[in-house]
Nucleic acid binder design. Structure first.
Lengths: 345, 345
DNA sequence: AGTGATGTGGGTAACGTTTTCCAAATGTTT
DNA sequence: AAACATTTGGAAAACGTTACCCACATCACT
């Protein structure tokens, strides 16, 4: 009996070259579809590769050429909206050689830096950053090191492309819907932001701006009422409790994200109130769960799938031509009306 | 004005060595806390590292030593249960040097192979596989190449550790709860499985077994009723419609996963039925959303967080000592009783 | 036959680390 | 003072690829 060794030696390009009776250069060329290979050589090399089950070491490749690896930074696996984006990215990459690696749990600039540096350390060929909070200088530096596309941040950099939903308009859409139903006391729950740059660039800030602006447009400028918490279910829960405790509580709550709206619904249920009977509730993102019948949440759809595939396309373009001018893509959101919004009582 | 170069040259160990006035060997030793460094040299090297902002290239490291990178394979970002596991893993890794990369969207053996190979190609130091469907031979081969821990699969391999919830017992817990409430027609929705090995190893199969066994234990062997679909919300929806269409529909539905239970609730709502009024509904996994008041789903909690941290611990142990005997950890589930279960009408 | 273009293949030097030596300096024991 | 052990630091060879060159053969055209 032949005992399996505890750890098998890796098959390298040298093994393939020997098996095929050619040089390692030749093997490398065939693998990369480079110039200077005859059909005969190609077939011999391919046969050797298959026979030995050879796989190029990404690590070794990284030292000279590309790794065929892309990195995606997610702020939070829990937010189901990011899954839609990921789907879009993955779909666009499906018939390419690229492999996707993700990181998650980056909620502050420090861990964001740590994670992005790690991707650079691995010589990833390109980066997709979702809703990064790092200062623009850091993002620029990053983009100078590796082709980068930023999702969910309205920056105008000459180094990286951006893909966004038109958050300002999206918020206005929802205010229009609620105002159209006859609501006057429409409140908003925002993700608190203090940094000046982020106030201008982050989707949450733009949604709040869009809300304010739309309220004025509808002659409800006096009624602007914002609870400033976070984009989490907890944030929604607390935001709702704040708003419901007002002297003149709102008849409609527009949450800046669906997860926030879930927290609002939770607070309502706890308080013995219902939506839309007592208070109308709307969210933003149109996560899959919003369509769930027991929830049936009115929301703003920002086509996560298309955001993802657009980002992937831009990234591949930028990898091919790092010098092409940067693009700022803004996709149009739509309002999805469901059961949690209705006329005020 | 000094124009920023389009792409900055990377700071390497050579730069650090020059700056500190020592050899690259010395720098390497300091960075790895290896033997043979004086306090004086250490401080000089550390200073140079900080000053230049040096970061070791994981790619270059991969060719000789370790990459300080671990890979996690997720079958599906959408299943919120995996987020709990990830949290556990991340927490355990927090005060180590290790960096986590994840891949997702592996629903068949082919894409699973592609993804795991990619991790090997990057010379990752260890792998955590969540609910892999590949044949044991492949998993063994993988584990021979890199230290591996498998979550959500009841294998007994001499190559890799496993961490699982006791799915058999968990299912029995829920059947006991429902039977205790007075239910007799307790149905189950399972994730369909045909492969013989997976029938013995996958959690979904064990949950179905546990259900069957417990039904017999409670003298309800005749009432065993299973809809065989998939562990998705759609699967739950269709499963419920199948079960509700029976001549003698069940008074309680035990879904093999919470996402499935959500689909069941959806189907009930659509049919104008309610839980627990018309039909009791229970799930498995105790995802965060189950505690959401508007859902309030009775479920089996399998402590995803602890599963994750245990897996991380085992992985680090195995990296340290690849020869130590493998462990099969089985954690005890608990039933979490909420609003969707009650006595039969 | 000579010239140049094109096709085909390989040799060799990187890439940025770690590892395995080895040498010199210093300390400790007899 | 000699002999030996320990500490401190470095030189050089990997690791597995790709990029840059160069050499040779073949072919088409003067």
């Amino acid at each position: 009996m032949h005992q399996q060794p505890a750890t098998a030696r890796r098959v390298t390009i040298v093994d393939v070259a020997r098996q095929a009776g050619v040089s390692t250069t030749a093997v490398s060329k065939v693998l990369r579809n480079a110039y200077g290979t005859s059909p005969h050589m190609r077939s011999r090399v391919r046969a050797a590769v298959d026979e030995l089950g050879y796989r190029p070491s990404a690590a070794a490749r990284a030292l000279r050429g590309r790794t065929w690896t892309l990195g995606v930074m997610l702020p939070d696996v829990r937010n189901p909206f990011f899954a839609d984006i990921l789907d879009g990215v993955a779909e666009h990459l499906d018939d390419t050689e690229y492999q996707l690696f993700m990181t998650s749990g980056c909620n502050d600039a420090t861990s964001e830096a740590r994670v992005t540096e790690a991707m650079i350390d691995h010589s990833m060929d390109g980066l997709i950053l979702i809703a990064p909070v790092s200062p623009p200088a850091h993002l620029d530096r990053l983009a100078r090191t590796a082709p980068t596309v930023v999702i969910g941040r309205h920056s105008h950099s000459s180094r990286f492309d951006t893909v966004n939903d038109d958050d300002f308009t999206g918020a206005a859409l929802m205010v229009a819907h609620l105002a159209g139903l006859g609501h006057h006391r429409i409140a908003h729950i925002e993700h608190h932001e203090s940094d000046r740059v982020r106030l201008a660039e982050m989707p949450n800030a733009l949604r709040a701006d869009g809300y304010r602006h739309a309220m004025h447009q509808h002659g409800l400028g006096e009624r602007v009422d914002i609870a400033s918490t976070t984009y989490t279910r907890d944030g929604g829960y607390h935001g709702a409790r704040i708003l419901l405790g007002r002297k003149n509580p709102p008849t409609a709550i527009f949450a800046g994200a669906d997860v926030v709206a879930l927290g609002v619904l939770d607070a309502l249920t706890e308080a013995g109130l219902s939506a839309p009977g007592d208070v109308s509730v709307a969210g933003y993102d149109n996560i899959t769960l919003a369509g769930f019948r027991k929830i049936s949440l009115t929301s703003v759809d920002q086509a996560g799938h298309r955001i993802g595939s657009t980002a992937a396309r831009l990234l591949l373009e930028r990898i091919t031509d790092p010098t092409r001018p940067t693009a700022q893509v803004k996709l149009s959101p739509t309002a999805v009306l469901r059961g949690t919004t209705g006329p005020p009582r």
